[in-house]
């Protein structure tokens, strides 16, 4: 479960911003192709494996 560490927003500020309490808000559904690499890194960096990149 997300614990508000915030690494995802640091790695992918284009798609993820933090709310007033440090929890991520992901506004976009589909990741633009040029950001997929960064999105993968952000998902890998999540300490609680709460962020998932669906690559179907």
């Amino acid at each position: 479960m997300c614990d508000g560490h915030g690494l995802c927003a640091g790695l992918l500020p284009e798609l993820i911003r933090l709310d007033d309490w440090g929890y991520p808000i992901i506004e976009v559904g589909e990741v633009p192709p040029e950001l997929v690499g960064l999105a993968r890194r952000a998902a890998d960096a999540c300490p609680t494996l709460a962020l998932l990149l669906d690559e179907r």
Binding site: M1, D3, D20, W21, Y23
Partner: peptide
């Protein structure tokens, strides 16, 4: 269990 609920509702 979820930060936005726990913190957000209090605020």
């Amino acid at each position: 269990q979820c930060g936005p609920c726990l913190h957000g509702l209090a605020a």
